[in-house]
């Protein structure tokens, strides 16, 4: 088996006085897609924020390596440059900044970190158009301010578009299915599946098994009370669906 793209070792994190992550261990090899499932409030979204570097959280213990490099020492933009991408559960609305302007800035920032020159406008347009086609994203959506007034489906499609354009090695999808109807879910899933390669790893965080019918995981982890309590193949997700989370609670309810 190849070296892991993402390696989380005994990760503890808290917000103010409340410990939320209580010793997370997770290793995702290249090309694999792992799903983390857990009930609301189990800390799985915190995991995604901590990995992406949101500064509301304090890491008290543990380490995270991205392709062998210490992730926790980096600023959020440095983590992105190193190949980490978080598809937000609630993408942030930024009035006054057009989606196009934003995409260009993000792509150029990444090229700069690799020592490459800025994209020419035609090349940029071509790249956006190609990536947008499978996601049903048209030009008018790109002219609008970033995420402002986007429907739930549009926001999630825009996240996957960014993922496609930035071509990260590690993608984290946080509750990507929330707020989507079945048609929108299929479009998003198709976009995500199209980005699966032998080199790229993915971590899908979800509450429901539904998404995993469309984005099929290699490994499923059950998350409870700030840590992974069970791991298995995709059948674990079905088992969860049938029996609920109660069996996996670290303490009896």
């Amino acid at each position: 088996m190849a070296n892991p793209i993402l390696e989380i070792r005994n990760l503890h994190a808290r917000i103010e006085d409340r410990e939320i992550l209580k010793g997370v261990n997770l290793s995702i090899p290249a090309g694999e897609l792992h799903a983390v499932m857990g009930r609301n409030g189990s800390g799985k979204s915190t995991l995604s924020y901590v990995l992406a570097g949101k500064d509301d959280y304090e890491i008290t213990e543990g380490e995270v390596l991205l392709d062998g490099v210490d992730l926790l020492a980096m600023e959020p933009d440095e983590r992105a440059a190193a190949g980490l991408f978080l598809a937000f559960q609630y993408p942030i609305e930024i009035p006054g900044v057009s989606t196009m302007t934003f995409l260009k800035a993000a792509m150029n920032a990444q090229r700069k970190s690799r020592g490459e020159g800025e994209l020419s406008t035609p090349d940029f347009m071509r790249a956006v158009k190609e990536a947008g086609a499978t996601l049903n994203i048209d030009a008018s959506m790109l002219k609008r301010p970033l995420n402002v007034g986007f429907s739930g489906g549009e926001k999630k499609r825009a996240e996957v578009l960014q993922m496609a354009l930035l071509a990260p090695k590690m993608c984290i999808l946080d509750e990507t299915d929330s707020g989507l109807d079945i048609d929108a879910l299929q479009v998003v899933a198709k976009g995500v599946n199209g980005l699966r390669t032998a080199q790229r790893s993915m971590l899908v965080i979800t509450h429901y098994q539904r998404l995993l019918n469309h984005i099929v995981p290699d490994v499923v982890h059950v998350f409870s009370d700030g840590r992974i309590v069970e791991s298995g193949d995709k059948s674990l997700a079905l088992q969860l669906e049938a029996k609920g989370y109660a069996d996996f609670d670290s303490e009896p309810a």
Partner: peptide, 19 residues
């Protein structure tokens, strides 16, 4: 908003100017 932009690889000063 700053975190969102930076999570896409945009540097802090650039993200500030952009916002």
């Amino acid at each position: 908003s700053m975190f969102y932009l930076m999570s896409r690889g945009i540097s802090k000063p650039e993200a500030e100017t952009m916002l």
